[in-house]
Design a protein around this nucleic acid. Structure first.
Length: 477
DNA sequence: CGACGGGACGC
DNA sequence: CGACGGGACGC
């Protein structure tokens, strides 16, 4: 009998690590009610259940005295239910008490009281992404099939006046916005827009292009779906909780002494990211593995990419220079981590002839450790908004960090962007220079990058589903 | 076979 | 008199 709370609307959050427990799901589904101290939970249940499924009613009481504070929260399963209740019950009285209720949408738990004048403004606008070709009229038409639209405002580039591919859809009522929010296709990524002047927007900071296309530094371990919650019971090292401390101790002995010698060599001009393939017990999660390899400076990525056998995983570890990668391999290969579970580490692409050599400088792998075919030197990138002359479609046989891909494709000049589609092993590469794109395609198609095969094809033109399917849609009034 | 991201409003 | 508890993962 539970409502499905994991509809497509929550897809974004689910795929991220640590969805904020303070956020109401779905958004705007919890009401904040200012009422009379004499109102009891039963009064609210009686008056509010007709609007939908109530998940929780909380009559706030003083922590110490237990006195009713005249505040109640009601959590509905759906935004539209909360919207109906808000519109219907605001200003009404319930039970035999004459105090009128003030019914507002509850702010998320972490942002405290807002008490803003323009409450209404928070309920009636959706912010969406849309094709850059869509006009205000198109969107008004489209969204009118779910609820009456007041107006649509495209976000436009200041100079060119072109659409930036975002829009605000304004409705006259919370309920209308809620209906559209729940019913519009997922590709609009609709969310309730923050009122214009508000600074409380706490979206992920979007920075267009990475600080550097070459670097994944700071990206941190990516949620490893399935490995994140790994328990430490199989870690006999200092008893679970001391897992990391155990390694710090280890690091403090001989490791750091050698490290200083290693650090002195870091000024070498060679700075190609270098990839290690690691076989690691599946009782080690990605975060633990990250911390281990992060002991050696220069770690860019550490990602569990696939199961190797039932007891082990294969991980990809990338340093921003070959020396660090070789050093990591020399120091950590064969290490029991945890005890009884040896790490197996090889430099990617060197599986053929990796004889141990005392001088790791001499077997510096350069680029062929990332890619099994020779790559040209890194080339200048095109500006992120440069016109795209050629788009490539890439298919991978497994996950690869995007920084690795960017690094590889930036070996041809005029790279504009590389991205992978969410939850898929394919994506697009954009070049401002057609010859570069074609050369990249010739060299890389069928190659292996960090042990992962890649196909590189010319991209088909974008699907044209956006403009002309409007006329097929049923309108409802 | 393997196909389309993104995110904020001129004052 | 307008802002945040309780309970607890689970086949």
């Amino acid at each position: 009998m539970f409502d499905n709370r994991s509809n497509s609307r929550n897809g974004n959050r689910d795929s991220r690590r640590g969805g904020d427990p303070n956020e109401d799901v779905p958004p705007m589904s919890r009401l904040f009610i200012i009422c009379n101290k004499a109102h009891r939970e039963e009064d609210f249940r009686e008056a509010f259940s007709r609007f939908g499924h109530i998940e929780d009613i909380w009559v706030v009481k003083d922590r110490h005295t237990g006195e009713n504070k005249g505040i109640t929260y009601i959590k509905y399963s759906k935004t539209t239910e909360a919207a109906r209740a808000q519109e219907e019950m605001n200003g009404k009285t319930i039970g035999s008490l004459d105090r009128t209720l003030k019914v507002l949408v509850a702010a998320n738990r972490n942002q405290g009281s807002s008490k803003s004048e323009n409450e209404h403004e928070k309920y009636v606008r959706l912010f969406i992404v849309c094709p850059k070709t869509a006009t205000e009229e198109d969107l008004k038409d489209e969204f009118s099939q779910w609820a009456p639209v007041e107006n649509v405002t495209l976000v436009r580039d200041k100079q060119s006046g072109n659409s930036k591919g975002f829009a605000y859809i304004r409705f006259s009522k919370f309920y209308d916005a809620a209906v559209a929010f729940e019913n519009c296709p997922a590709h609009y990524k609709a969310m309730f827009a923050e009122p214009k002047g508000s600074t409380t927007r706490n979206r992920d900071q979007y920075s267009g292009r990475d600080d550097s296309i070459m670097s994944g530094r700071g990206a941190g371990p990516i949620g490893s779906g399935g490995f994140g919650g790994g328990n430490m019971n199989c870690m006999p090292m200092g008893g679970g909780a001391n897992f990391n401390n155990g390694f710090n101790d280890w690091g403090n002995n001989s490791f750091n002494n050698n490290m200083s010698q290693f650090m002195g060599m870091q000024n070498t001009p060679v700075s190609q990211p270098t990839c290690l393939e690691v076989i690691v017990s599946n009782c080690v999660n990605q975060d633990q593995l990250w911390r281990l390899f992060d002991i050696i400076p220069g770690l860019d990525y550490c990602q569990i990419v696939r199961e190797h056998d039932p007891r082990t995983n294969e991980a990809l570890v990338v340093y921003d220079n070959p020396e660090a990668a070789i050093y990591a391999k020399d120091k950590l290969h064969g290490l029991e981590y945890p005890i009884g579970e040896r790490l197996i580490i090889q430099v990617s692409g060197m599986s053929g002839g990796n004889h141990i050599d005392t001088s790791f400088i001499d077997r510096r792998p350069k680029k062929d450790s990332i890619c099994n075919v020779p790559l040209p030197d890194a080339q200048p990138l095109a500006p992120i908004d440069a016109p795209v002359a050629q788009r490539l479609f890439i298919v991978l046989t497994a996950n690869l960090p995007i920084s690795i891909l960017k690094n590889v494709f930036s070996c041809w000049r005029g790279l504009v962007d590389v991205y992978l589609l969410p939850n898929k092993n394919c994506g697009y590469v954009k070049y401002a220079d057609r010859d570069s794109a074609q050369s990249a395609m010739r060299v890389l198609h069928g190659a292996e990058i960090c042990g992962t095969k890649i196909k590189v094809l010319k991209a088909e033109e974008r699907g044209n589903g956006e403009e002309d399917d409007g006329r097929k849609r049923m309108r409802r009034n």
